[in-house]
């Protein structure tokens, strides 16, 4: 259930423009171009309608997701926020086509030809999931080899994306020789090299230390700006969601439902030290911790 309660400092989720400018220092640094999202009419990229997913386990049925409705626009950076166990990973697996929903529809509006449908939705997992028996470069080449691209062209493309994530000097390293942050960068290169329509990131920075995480957030934002990818980024960290997202979609758990959406003002990079940021974070955290009306009713009724 999406709650439609208006927040004074927020655009409503419908995106009709802010009614009130945020007070205090600006939320973002001036000078960065505001993205098209929210201004020009954006094209729809992903549509999720009434999606429900149930797992069968030893304890019986577990309803992981219930009635999820969600749209994502082309070039948008959508953050899905929710406590652990609320079904975020399940949702990404469904979007990626690794699992099928019991019910409902997930539609990707792809600009690709039919025969290039392979690897249009790529996941980056929390644990990077690089293959340890391959070098970093071979990992990045993995998907390209499946697509039967020429060896020379593949390598050039792989090296280009390794350079984009600043790993060109580590191309011939083995996976276990990389730090946690470098692994995530390599995983990012491995996904980007396949030029996906949709990039799905499942808490990619959750296991990293604070400094590495901030650095990677900045780099990801920069890469997003340059590649113009549509990203769905899952996190359980409120600050991370506000720092990166054009929009934050809050899920509540058991079963996972969309609780609320927050559309953030355009313009980047986001400034964490502004009152706006702090207010918004506090607001989301309140919503995050509130069990939510549906759940309260369930418990008391």
């Amino acid at each position: 259930m999406t709650e439609a309660r208006a927040l004074p400092c927020l655009e409503p989720a419908t995106g009709r423009g802010r009614e009130q400018e945020p007070v205090g220092a600006p939320f973002f640094l001036p000078g960065e171009p505001a993205r098209a999202y929210g201004r020009a009419k954006p094209r729809l990229k992903l549509e999720i309608r009434d999606v429900t997913k149930t797992f069968t386990s030893a304890q019986g049925l577990i309803r992981a997701l219930s009635n999820i409705n969600l749209t994502v626009h082309e070039g948008e950076f959508a953050c899905i926020l929710g406590p652990s166990g609320c079904g975020k990973s399940t949702l990404l697996h469904l979007i990626a086509g690794l699992e099928l929903p019991d019910h409902g529809e997930i539609r990707l509006y792809s600009s690709r030809a039919k025969k290039e449908k392979k690897a249009e939705k790529l996941i980056i997992f929390q644990e990077a999931a690089l293959f340890p028996w391959l070098t970093v470069l071979e990992n990045v080449l993995f998907g390209l080899r499946l697509q039967k691209l020429g060896a020379k062209e593949s390598k050039e493309r792989a090296m280009h994306f390794l350079a984009l994530v600043k790993l060109e000097d580590f191309a011939n390293c083995f996976v276990h020789e990389l730090s946690g942050g470098m692994k995530q960068r390599a995983a990012l290169a491995r996904a980007l090299v396949l030029n996906p329509e949709l990039l799905l990131m499942d808490e990619p920075f959750a296991a990293l230390d604070f400094q590495t995480r901030e650095k990677l957030q900045q780099e990801l934002e920069e890469i997003w700006r340059r590649t113009k990818k549509t990203i769905i980024f899952v996190t359980h960290n409120v600050e991370e969601a506000i720092t990166l997202g054009d929009r934050v979609i809050l899920l509540s758990g058991h079963p996972g439902t969309v609780k609320r959406e927050y559309t953030l003002p355009p313009g980047r990079p986001r400034q964490k030290e502004t009152p706006f940021f702090a207010e918004l974070a506090a607001e989301i955290k309140r919503d995050f911790q509130n069990p939510g009306r549906e759940l309260v009713e369930q418990v008391t009724g």
Partner: peptide, 21 residues
């Protein structure tokens, strides 16, 4: 299962998935 998921996600299946992952 993570490796299999990652491989399938990049388009590997069947014999390719078996031999390469």
């Amino acid at each position: 299962p993570l490796y299999i998921r990652a491989g399938r996600n990049m388009g590997a299946k069947g014999m390719v998935l078996f031999l390469r992952i």
